[in-house]
């Protein structure tokens, strides 16, 4: 009952977002006051919908790759075989997170050239860190009694990982993915400075032509996407951790 109002609000925001992406012209009157008399109020240099989709696709691809690699690495360094890599992994994560996303992006350009690729690489590299950190934390702070019990019931190392350790670490890992996605959604806009097709194009077009309406619509679409995705992740995490009795 207490969740009803925020959820209705989210639904409304989602509906408005979809409406805006499909029929941006409907919103022209709202945006008109922000621009000079004859300037366009709705982004007209391409389809907002396709930019949004390609923005999401970029973020999704990068995050998916980052999740696979980060969780894989975290599993490795939390096994006895990989224990020697643990201290270094922790420091690398800490150091990596001090790298500004723009710097990662800019440094990727010399390696792979302009376009989607440097953006994907930057989002991937930057997205690795929070996921890796959380997966490492989640997998290395499991209650010892439970890990013991899993061994005691005769599970093999693989069964323990799949049936006990990963499910228990899942909420923490998801929190890492959520963080990573939120950062990536915003960072992807900067990708447009190196010619990636993202909503950053709308914002940059606005900055270049001094069109506040463009800046606003580009920024808001990204922000709304970020908030909705963030909330969706939080909801899943809540359900999972309530199940695991961690609340």
């Amino acid at each position: 009952m207490k969740r009803l109002l925020p959820n209705l609000l989210r639904l409304a925001v989602l509906v408005i977002l979809i409406a805006f992406l499909l029929q941006p012209m409907l919103f022209e009157p709202l945006l008109k006051p922000l621009v000079q008399a004859n300037a366009p109020a709705v982004y007209n240099q391409g389809s907002l919908l396709s930019l949004t989709l390609s923005h999401l696709a970029t973020v999704f691809t990068a995050t998916l790759a980052a999740t696979i690699v980060a969780v894989g690495l975290a599993i490795l360094v939390t096994r006895p075989i990989g224990a020697e890599f643990l201290p270094l992994s922790r420091s690398l994560v800490n150091i990596g997170q001090t790298f500004p996303p723009v710097a990662v992006l800019a440094l990727a350009v010399p390696a792979v050239g302009f376009g989607e690729k440097p953006t994907l690489i930057a989002l991937f590299l930057y997205g690795l860190l929070p996921i890796f950190e959380n997966a490492m934390t989640g997998l290395s702070t499991l209650p010892p009694a439970i890990v013991e019990a899993a061994r005691g019931t005769g599970m093999t190392a693989w069964q323990r990982l799949i049936k006990v350790e990963l499910p228990l670490a899942l909420p923490v890992i998801l929190a890492g993915i959520r963080l990573s996605v939120t950062i990536s959604l915003a960072t992807a806009t900067i990708g447009s400075t190196v010619a990636a097709k993202t909503l950053g194009e709308v914002i940059i077009a606005g900055l270049q032509s001094n069109n506040l309406a463009f800046v606003l619509q580009g920024g808001l679409v990204v922000a709304v996407l970020a908030v909705l995705i963030y909330d969706a992740f939080s909801a899943v995490e809540r359900v999972l951790s309530r199940r695991a009795g961690r609340v």
Partner: peptide, 17 residues
């Protein structure tokens, strides 16, 4: 071996999920 031997540990160690 452990599948054939029951083991009840201190603090029960039930799987919370």
């Amino acid at each position: 071996l452990r599948r054939r031997i029951g083991y009840a540990i201190q603090g029960h160690g039930l799987f919370p999920h």
